[in-house]
């Protein structure tokens, strides 16, 4: 339903999106992750026809964004990051106006607006002026607007931004419900939220796509895993044992009850636990606990984005004279 190939967008000297390619299949819910300023909103704005691409190609529902913008816009419901307001209209009037603008037939308009308000949970503020409702409600008015014409593709740019936990929960439930008969691309920088809702995530950072896959799959394929070791003994001996098997711990902490704990990141393809166990036994350090863990999504995200920063900086330093 969404196909992006080598998409780039430049604003003057700034390359906001740099050769991004991905596809989203019908009925898929895909989380679009990235730190602030990563290029999520710019990519979304190109997909919605608000900005032209500098190069590359984007298609939504089989229509080219550049040459068939109107057909693309007929296929999408879009919730922008900042939901704008027409303060002088009531919520229901605003949604009726938007439904009419989107070509919902007059006879079906009242029903479509009622359904969208119900899904977004804003029926109780239907008669309030848009300018008088809270930020959370305004966000949900924007969601109802995206849903009102029942488009096959939904593009939601940070739909839970600024919402309280209950409102977030509701929005996540709405997105989950939509998954059955809609294609959803939603951006966020809140990892747990993306993990809960989407079957697949795309990570963008500094305008480039850094990862694409199911959350569990991506984490399993992480370059490093976390080693936790707890022994009865002192920190110096534990450090020496770790060093002997080539592990540099991130931290070593004396717990105060005669035990010491160490944490270290180790390459995913290596399992250092047998060698380490032998070394600890040889050093007469009774092992209380030893486990090798996959990183959490948050740790993985940090590695992918901040790690990329480091890699980019190293590459830049190597290229620089």
């Amino acid at each position: 339903m969404i196909r992006v190939a080598e998409l780039s967008k430049r604003f003057g000297p700034v390359l906001a999106v740099d050769g991004v390619s991905f596809e989203v299949a019908r009925g898929e819910v895909v989380g679009f992750l990235g730190p602030n300023g990563a290029g999520k909103t710019t990519t979304i704005r190109v997909l919605t026809g608000f900005h032209p691409a500098t190069s590359g190609r984007a298609e939504v529902a089989g229509h080219d964004v550049a040459t068939a913008s109107l057909a693309v816009r007929q296929s999408i419901g879009y919730l922008p990051q900042e939901v704008p307001i027409y303060p002088d209209l009531r919520v229901v009037e605003y949604l009726r106006y938007r439904a009419a603008l989107k070509g919902v037939p007059a006879k079906a308009r009242a029903g479509a607006v009622a359904r969208a308000m119900d899904k977004a949970g804003i029926t109780d503020v239907a008669r309030k002026l848009v300018g008088q409702v809270s930020h959370g409600y305004r966000q949900r008015v924007g969601l109802a607007d995206a849903l009102v014409a029942d488009p096959p593709v939904l593009i939601l740019d940070e739909p839970t931004s600024g919402l309280d936990p209950n409102q977030r929960r509701r929005i996540k439930q709405v997105v989950r419900d939509l998954a059955n008969d809609h294609t959803v691309l939603f951006s966020s920088h809140i990892l747990t939220e993306v993990q809960e809702v989407s079957s697949r995530i795309l990570v963008i950072h500094r305008g480039r796509l850094r990862a694409d896959g199911a959350p569990a799959q991506l984490v399993a394929g992480a370059a490093r895993r976390m080693l936790h070791v707890c022994v009865r003994g002192d920190a110096t001996t534990l450090r020496a044992a770790l060093a002997a098997v080539g592990i540099a711990p991130e931290n070593v902490t004396a717990n105060g009850d005669g035990t010491t704990t160490a944490h270290a990141r180790v390459p995913s393809q290596v399992d250092p636990t047998p060698a380490l166990a032998e070394r600890l036994l040889a050093a007469a350090l009774p092992v209380r606990e030893m486990r090798l863990e996959l990183p959490s999504l948050e740790e993985w995200f940090h590695t992918v984005t901040e790690g990329c920063d480091s890699a980019d900086e190293v590459a830049a330093a190597e290229v620089a004279p």
Binding site: F50, Y78, P80, P84, Y86, R98, L101, K102, G103, D145
Partner: peptide, 13 residues
């Protein structure tokens, strides 16, 4: 106000 974005991304000429 940013409403131009919602207006121009609706299916309108």
């Amino acid at each position: 106000s940013g409403s131009l974005e919602t207006l121009m991304t609706a299916p309108v000429r």
